[in-house]
Simulated assay, not measured.
Amino acid sequence: MRLSRARDLVIGQDALTRPAAPSDIRGRDRPDRAMKIVEAVADKYLRVLTAYDYDPAVAGHNPDSAMTLVVADREIVAADENVAALTFVAVDGGDLPAWQPGCHLDFHLPSGLRRQYSLCGDPADRGRYRIAVRSIPEGGGGSIEMHGLLPGTAVTVRGPRNGFPFVPTGSALFVAGGIGITPIIAMVRAARAAGIDWQFVYSGRSRESMPFLDEIETWESERVFVRPDDEFGRPTAGELLRRAPAGGAVYCCGPTPMLDAVRDRFADTGATALHFERFGAPTVLDGTPFEVELASTGEVLPVRADESALAVIRNRMPGVGYSCQQGFCGTCRVHVLSGTPEHRETRLTRQEQEDEMLICVSRSVGGRLTLDL
């Protein structure tokens, strides 16, 4: 599961009506029990959120420092056998840097690929990190390589980092789509432990493709709605957000269409904060066409208004480096030899932006960019 991070906050309007209880996660009928709504004031919530942001100085660990970790265990966690949970430990068996729900790790794979995966284990267990990866044969190769890691294999890792922090206070709706369950499952565990008011909606193609159902089945059934597409159809934003708590927060992680739908309809709920994590490249907004010239060959590639420079360049150079596709990891940074980039990222400093860009999200102010590729 290669992931990328983006956070948003939206002020909501009217709360949606809570539906009748669905069947349980195995398809059995069950009774409904009302859930108390805990009112939370938006500005107070945001002050708490700031206090939980990941701070390397407080954590005592620089997330840019490379660590060598060893695969200690590999477990299949979905019935279709396409999702593997991998457990990593330190070479010397010592404690690993602390993390919080929402954190991810940067993996530097033997092939040279760099990929990011959410931690989905127990933050209290300092001796190991656990992630889960869905095998995507038509992807960029990272998930296949991760699936092939066997116990005893050493990998280089950086992190943990947190661009998707969870605040265990107030009330919350958690929405996960497919492998987007990985950061969400750690958050729901924390919500249960903290005793906050929570609801959880989990969508996927089928029950067989959805990891961690065995654990989720043990949770409070009246708070959990598992809705596979092959049983319920593709979810609408209204269905995903119907349990959003008035005055509370929504945490959503999954594919781009799900996130776009949730963002579009969030204002219709009574919730006051939306936090999300995106898998895959975001939709290009307000883009204009431009051209990219590859300095190594002189070839000029047109970039349409609705596509990224990275996507176009990958068609000619499949080995070009990339990871998050959101403009924060820095893997796809390249030198700009001529032209003026339109920077849409959060990684580079002002000085670096003078002659570099991240081709996953940044574009051109106009005309042609000549890149050192």
Rank of each mutant, 00 (worst) to 15 (best):
Asp32Tyr: 12
Asp32Gly: 15
Val41Thr: 06
Arg26Thr: 13
Val48Ala: 15
Tyr54Lys: 05
Tyr45Thr: 13
Ala34Ile: 03
Pro56Phe: 01
Ala51Tyr: 02
Asp55Ile: 00
Ser23Pro: 15
Arg47Asn: 03
Ala40Thr: 11
Ala40Met: 02
Lys36Glu: 05
Lys36His: 14
Tyr45Leu: 11
Arg26Asn: 10
Ala51Lys: 01
Ile37Tyr: 12
Asp29Arg: 12
Asp29Gly: 15
Ser23Glu: 06
Tyr54Pro: 12
Arg26Phe: 14
Tyr54Ala: 13
Ala51Trp: 02
Pro31Leu: 05
Val41His: 07
Leu46Lys: 02
Leu46Arg: 03
Lys36Thr: 13
Leu49Ser: 07
Tyr52Cys: 06
Leu46Phe: 11
Leu49Met: 08
Asp43Trp: 10
Arg33Gly: 09
Met35Thr: 02
Lys44Ser: 14
Asp43Tyr: 09
Ala51Arg: 01
Lys44Gln: 11
Gly27Leu: 00
Ser23Ile: 08
Pro56Thr: 01
Arg30Pro: 06
Val48Gly: 15
Ala51Asp: 09
Asp29Ile: 12
Arg30Val: 08
Met35Asp: 06
Ile37Asp: 11
Ala42Gln: 03
Asp43Thr: 12
Arg30Ser: 08
Ala34His: 04
Val41Ser: 08
Met35Cys: 00
Ala51Phe: 01
Lys36Ile: 12
Arg30Gln: 07
Ile37Gly: 13
Ala40Glu: 00
Pro31His: 03
Arg33Ala: 10
Asp55Thr: 05
Asp24Leu: 01
Arg47Gln: 04
Ala51His: 03
Arg26His: 13
Arg47Phe: 06
Val48Glu: 10
Tyr54Arg: 09
Asp43His: 12
Val41Tyr: 03
Arg26Lys: 02
Pro56Gln: 00
Arg28Thr: 05
Asp53Ala: 11
Val38Glu: 00
Val41Trp: 06
Ser23Gln: 08
Arg47Ala: 05
Asp24His: 09
Glu39Gly: 15
Gly27Gln: 00
Leu46Trp: 05
Asp43Leu: 07
Ile37Asn: 14
Tyr54Ser: 11
Asp55Arg: 02
Tyr54Gly: 10
Val48Lys: 14
Asp43Met: 00
Tyr52Asn: 04
Glu39Asn: 14
Tyr54Phe: 15
Ala51Leu: 00
